[in-house]
Amino acid sequence: MPFQSSLILYFVILIISLLPQNSDGSLNPKFEACEPKTCGNNQTIIYPFYIEGIQEPFCGYPGFGLSCGNDGFPFLNMSDDKYMIHQIFYNNNSLRVSNAVFSRPNTRSDCLSRTHNLTLSGTRLALAPNQCELVLFFECDNHDGLQEHRIGCSEENKTSSVVAIIREDRNLSFSLKNCKGGVVNAMVENKEGGVREALRRGFVVRWNVSDCNKCRKSGGKCGFDKGIFSFRCYCPHDTHARKCSQG
């Protein structure tokens, strides 16, 4: 029957795709293509990340494409905002990021554009535990009661302020009454150095994708084949499902 024939053909193609490739001794082009790169600040970019336009998409996991900023830092898009990557910790699958709006040095006179709520649902990223949640208020009145929480002026209305308050702070309801530019949630790793500095320093997120350690330890470079939606280990002369064959 046509359906049975199509099903058999699908499994034949799947099995062939999982077999080692380029076993004739030639150098695997995908192994060469997935050479580690940087954006200029000596921070190595490898799987699950890849630099869009510089590295091939198959060198990283879908949705983990990065862009390079003028200052040499890589950026990742999350929740419709650009986040600067301060450091990637490949040993424990985590990275420290900060919203690009707050990446400049701590200056209370800076005008800040409105950000978006940080939401990671539906992604392969999750917040690391034991961090602090902030609430940002935009276009706030320059009320004396809010000055200690002011982190800059509002880009939409430069005569108003942007206020950042810890979610448990008793001034939260007071800010709601005196700010009319919207409310946005944000995260910081800790409050050391003040809230504005904490926003610039950022917070930690963890990724949960196919593990690369076995492939990397066997001399391969990790990647992802979107055609079969599967992790791949690109070895010097062939491609495997998990790690390079010994010898």
Rank of each mutant, 00 (worst) to 15 (best):
Y10W: 10
G63E: 05
L136V: 07
D24N: 12
K226L: 06
Y83D: 03
H86F: 03
R167A: 15
P74M: 06
H240Q: 15
T115Q: 07
F137K: 08
A33F: 10
M187Y: 14
F73A: 14
F102M: 01
G63N: 08
W207P: 00
L14E: 12
L18H: 12
G25Y: 03
S98K: 00
T44Y: 06
R96A: 00
Y50M: 01
L118C: 08
R216N: 05
Q4D: 11
N99C: 01
C153G: 12
S5N: 12
G152R: 13
V184H: 02
T44F: 09
G182V: 04
F58I: 02
L66Q: 02
I165E: 07
S113M: 06
L125C: 08
L7S: 09
S6C: 08
C111V: 03
S6G: 08
P29M: 10
L14C: 04
F138Y: 15
S109I: 08
N22D: 11
D225Y: 02
F73L: 14
F137W: 14
H143Q: 10
N77F: 06
T38L: 07
G25A: 11
V163E: 10
C215Y: 00
D71A: 07
V183F: 04
V162P: 13
K177C: 04
N77R: 14
S103A: 15
N142E: 10
L172N: 09
V184W: 05
R114L: 05
S79G: 06
S173H: 12
L127M: 15
P74W: 03
E189D: 08
P2K: 14
L14N: 06
T38Q: 04
T44W: 05
H116F: 11
L134A: 09
E35S: 12
A198N: 02
L199M: 10
C233T: 01
F75L: 13
L76C: 05
Y10Q: 09
F75I: 08
P57T: 03
S5F: 01
N28C: 08
G181P: 01
Q246H: 05
F138W: 10
Q131N: 07
R200Q: 11
S154T: 13
F203P: 01
C222M: 01
H149W: 10
I88V: 15
S23N: 13
N178Q: 09
I51A: 03
F3A: 14
A186F: 06
C153Y: 13
S160E: 15
K191V: 14
W207F: 06
F224E: 00
G72L: 05
F11W: 15
